[in-house]
Amino acid sequence: MELNDFLRKFEYAIEDVEPNSVDADLDFQNNLEQWDSLAAMTLLAMIDNEYDVVLTGEELISCKTVNELFELIKSKSNK
């Protein structure tokens, strides 16, 4: 699985986030205006759809940056 591809999917999952506006080092929980519980729910579902990985809410919020999230998914994925 590829980081840039993940960044685009991340942007898509969250409402009103401009394409190509998210960097891997973004602290998405604190520095993303559009972050809310719906964003979290959509992200979890997107990760399940795209990577066949089911994360818990706790696992998601343990990630400080988008890159950490990417690495977590990668570690649980077979792809």
Partner: peptide
Amino acid sequence: YIPFKVLSRKN
């Protein structure tokens, strides 16, 4: 819990 925007046929 799957928001409609990302509801796949698989799910």
